[in-house]
Design a protein around this nucleic acid. Structure first.
Lengths: 409, 409
DNA sequence: TTATTAAGTCAATTGTCTTGACTAATTTCT
DNA sequence: AGAAATTAGTCAAGACAATTGACTTAATAA
């Protein structure tokens, strides 16, 4: 009788949605400002003192916030500040990369409590999935040992791996990332761990880390360029990570552009020239070498001609990338991060200046156009762990709505 | 006593915020689906039948929706569909461009009711502001004549002009756009018209038009490349127009890239090669000529060598721009629009194919990677007029919050 | 004719924020 | 020293909007 076309509509909300949002706003405000009194919170959130009082009391009962000693702030009754309780929530992060697999556990404020690293057995996900589950189990045990409360307060498992997802990928990748990308990893880990599992690409995870405990803390519009084995960008727009229609937003390593000295139509992916993979190629390093980081570190400390040439090339491309991202997104700042030795990062940042002119050159900037973020190789795993915390506690549109709008990775 | 640092926090919400959101969700659903019954709406929005009934009754009393004849849909009581009432709201759009100033008035569903065009007196905003106010007044009168209800139902004035805003601009622009860009236009128009005035750049306006009545209707992730006198992009992300930290997001005409055949470091703004301005330059046309459109139309119908060369050049650059945007945003589709004769648009679209490979090439795409949007020169003015409608009636995060978070243009 | 299904209403309930009056603690003014 | 002003925070009642569950109405299917 009826054609049964699907009805397209956004979800509605109710008082509980509003309440959930307000709880998140309180937590966000405490995270951003360190400590605030109930009156501070009322002013900052435009809610009434009474509403704030009720919510704070609830959060205190839930073990998410705690009061500090009263402070006198001039005239009037002294205020009682509140702060987040780190042990209020925990999450585990998993990074699957080509040469290494890492897990970390973090608490509500982003402190790292455990970290583990392993090399997956060759053979892709069919064999590797089991090892990954074992690693997570081990991490969980270590976390419970370090923080017994975590047993009931684990909010989820965040997974980060190189993107893009859902695309016919390079088949000539010896680390079988393509196999991992098409493997039903989220489902496998969900059933294997009974945790809420979400997947993002490594650049997005790096951006999540920068947002929670790094240079993007408190910024609503920030872009993280992540220089790892590949090249990507994590996009923080309107205070939330932007994923795009298919979870592949920010894969700037796949921008096609002309190499220096190439012909007009000789277009190649940016990450062929600007990534740790390209550095390894340029320096004849073995990317699978467990001591790769130290080798690169040594090279960066005493750069020879080949290192200098790679840096010049990479900086040339990154200048363009930064200018493009600034022009397209109009962000407050761009953050350069990646799993590389600090020496290399400094050389690269240096070589990027002066930056190309862009609309980001405006009077009264508060943040620098480009700054260095985490270069810690663990940043991606930390960001992966930060995602469940962010999803559970940060204010976001989808958290208000009745049926959670989940974007497929 | 106290250091008085500002407290950073997001705004809270309450039942009224939730209610406002639900109203918007209903209107959005009716806009997207044409007509829906209360039961349909309840299912689609995850609200209860009763809640929907109350909201719909209220919207009907407010003159925003109306019921249609009951329809039998198989077993069960027939349902009563509702649809939007076009006369429920009106808005005026103003486009200030280099050579021409246009106003249009639209209703709730985006139908254009009046359109006016004028040439501003030379001398920039000091002299032009008065003429603009007069034009708006004239439009308002014409609108009231065409739709008497509009007198009490005018929700705002949307203004579109070329960006970027707040940047030290080209001073050698004979049309004094720089002067307009630094002129306090919003304030002047606000006081002069007593309307709610908001400013956006022309590409954003074009995207707003595409979203309300064009190719982006119902899409949550779409990019509109706007080829006008300059070159820009309007970004629809998560169903909302993205403005960036300073309202300049999408100014892709200012991407610096190497011209075909140029040296590696010979970087120039994209719009120097890809814009109607560059076309005029290439064809020795006078951009201020009131018959410019017809001249270009004639050229496009019988393209000579110079036209072909320009198209090849522009398409070469646009291919790269589309690939960059797809890679960075991972949208559902990219829409090419602009104020140009359809013949030229077709030639351009043709020359853009085959598109460069990108992550947008995935199985099961529902929308084409690139499609043609409005080429109507009035699209920007229509988009400007659609902005107040969208701001007033579309679901958006900021509409739920207590203190409206307004981004400065 | 009867059962089933679906749309939509009625009336009471619930959850959450708001309102306005209040208490408490501190500094500033006289 | 005492009074006034200011600020933090609580108490209790009220308002608002969605929910709940029973009900009515109207159609098709058996």
């Amino acid at each position: 009788m009826n054609e049964m076309r699907p009805i397209r509509a956004k979800s509605g909300t109710n008082q509980e949605g509003a309440s959930a949002h307000n709880r998140r706003v309180m937590i966000d405000a405490l995270r951003l400002n360190g400590q605030l009194s109930r009156a501070d919170l009322a002013r900052a959130t435009a809610l009434t003192k009474q509403a704030v009082s009720n919510i704070i009391e609830e959060l205190e009962n839930d073990g998410l916030v705690t009061s500090l000693a009263a402070v006198r702030r001039g005239r009037g009754q002294p205020s009682t500040p509140y702060r987040l309780v780190p042990e209020g929530a925990f999450a585990i992060g998993l990074q699957i990369d080509r040469h290494v697999t890492r897990t970390v556990a973090v608490d509500l404020v982003g402190t790292v409590l455990t970290r583990k690293e392993t090399n997956l057995p060759a053979g892709g996900p069919e064999k590797g999935a089991e090892a990954v589950l074992a690693l997570i189990e081990e991490t969980r045990r270590a976390l419970v040992k370090a923080a017994p409360k975590s047993k009931d307060r684990l909010v989820g498992l965040g997974v980060a791996m190189p993107g893009p997802f859902g695309i016919a990928a390079d088949q000539d990748d010896p680390w079988m990332m393509a196999a991992w990308q098409s493997f039903p990893l989220v489902e496998t880990l969900s059933t294997g761990t009974a945790l809420d599992v979400r997947l993002q690409n490594d650049a997005a995870a790096a951006a999540t880390a920068e947002k929670m405990v790094g240079a993007a803390h408190g910024l609503d519009h920030a872009l993280c360029i992540y220089l790892g084995y590949g090249l990507g960008a994590g996009l923080i727009l309107n205070g939330e990570l932007y994923r795009g229609a298919n979870g592949n937003a920010g894969e700037i390593g796949m921008i096609l552009s002309r190499p220096r000295g190439g012909a007009d139509d000789a277009r190649a992916p940016l990450e062929h020239r600007t990534s740790i993979a390209s550095l390894c190629k340029a320096l004849d390093l073995d990317p699978a070498d467990p001591d790769l980081y130290d080798h690169i570190d040594a090279k960066a400390r005493m750069p020879d001609q080949r290192v200098k040439a790679w840096i010049a090339d990479a900086a040339f491309e990154l200048q363009a990338a930064v200018q493009i991202l600034e022009t397209v997104f109009d962000p407050q700042t761009v953050i350069l991060c990646g799993g590389m030795p600090p020496g290399l990062a400094d050389l690269l940042l240096d070589a990027l200046h002066p930056l190309l002119p862009s609309i980001a050159e405006r009077r009264g900037r508060s943040a620098p156009r480009l700054q260095l973020g985490f270069t810690d190789p663990w940043a991606v795993a930390i960001g992966a762990a930060a995602e469940p915390i962010s999803r559970t506690f940060d204010p976001r549109f989808s958290a208000i709505l009745k049926t959670r709008v989940t974007a497929a990775p």
